[in-house]
Nucleic acid binder design. Sequence first.
DNA 1: TAGGATTTGTGCGTATGTATT
DNA 2: TAATACATACGCACAAATCCT
Lengths: 228, 228
Amino acid sequence: MNPLNTDNSDFKARDRFERLHNEIRNRICLLDYSPGMRLSEIELADEFGVSRTPLRRVLVRLEGEGLLQSVQGVGTFVTDAEIEELTQTYLLRMELAELTGKLSPKAPDDRLMDDFRALSRRSKHLLDAAEPRAFAQLNMDFFLALLKLTDNEPLREISERLYFQTTRIWLKSVFASVIDLSDEVQVFDREIDDIMAALELGDMHAAALIQRAHISMSFTRMHNGQAR
Amino acid sequence: MNPLNTDNSDFKARDRFERLHNEIRNRICLLDYSPGMRLSEIELADEFGVSRTPLRRVLVRLEGEGLLQSVQGVGTFVTDAEIEELTQTYLLRMELAELTGKLSPKAPDDRLMDDFRALSRRSKHLLDAAEPRAFAQLNMDFFLALLKLTDNEPLREISERLYFQTTRIWLKSVFASVIDLSDEVQVFDREIDDIMAALELGDMHAAALIQRAHISMSFTRMHNGQAR
DNA sequence: TAGGATTTGTGCGTATGTATT
DNA sequence: TAATACATACGCACAAATCCT
């Protein structure tokens, strides 16, 4: 066998699964598919050029992650969240964020700090012209970068899972103008700068506490916005 | 339609999926299927009287939960865990156990206290004649009962997930006589009694701390046992 | 190196369940 | 109530990947 072929492994079943899974998950979490929306197995299968079988495998996985729910005879729907469940998840996410600074914290190397600086620049850009989807993408990228600050793999997995489950609900509130988008962008820009300041001091625990505080405040703003 | 038929809903696709999923997960976690073992899709499908298709749906879900891994052309294997990954998971489980006493703790009602008393009796029974599988089952039942002490649903889900991922590895050590089984039963019996004492005082935080301590000690005993 | 046995992955036709007319 | 449309769930035959001789 030619080893050059085995390197290009994007054609194997496993990698195709990963691509589809990642793509559909992103669409859900960036609100291309909003909560309550019905997805069509056939349309998705056609779009990705596969039959329903491998696509359904992806949907089953996403159902296990709490992002979809399939009902026989009815359809496959993007899940929503009640305020009670959302509250519980946010309380847990706050604790997990703090744990990131306690359990195997890992100081960022030069490469990662460069990534943070790039994220900060993207944020400054949004201050002038706030675009919903660009904000959603930046928010996700920043969260994923923060996860690299701990070596505890199970903690990373769980934090990521809860992020994907809840942030889209929060984003929906932001985009529905219940909260003002440009305000939210300003707050987020401050969060990035605050956390980067802590990281440059090498104070991982402080960085985690700042993140925890911002998760808490995000939820509070959303909650107050809904109560209006 | 006869409403009596819709009540017996064990025949619907969703319930059948739940049954198969629960059954196979238990087999994995009670070490009927031990880490590294290969499972046969065809044999399992035959045993449960279904075709490969719905069975594979269950396997995909279990793979998402980190209990299985399928490789095309090779087989479906029960996952194992390296000491490093196990350490990280135990550290996280300790923190989550403590969170159970902090996030929406719920005092046990009479019904749940009766359940705990029944679990305690089963434990006393094992003190005389320790049987591996009975101990594994009791350990799982006790853990699941403890989860009812919090109203935070996401915390329950995650704690359960991590329990299923790691406890079987610990059980494997116990059963391999790296640790003495009767010693482990005695320690576990004390844990039940200690936690019940805290519960009877209504001190949920204390109960959670005791659980955290025992998770820590279990891991330490396993670790020391392996180092011999 | 080649080929056959075995296992998971895929494609498609059909069964089953649900909502609507 | 019944029929029809349409969605997911299922069963089976075949393709693709891997392992071993």
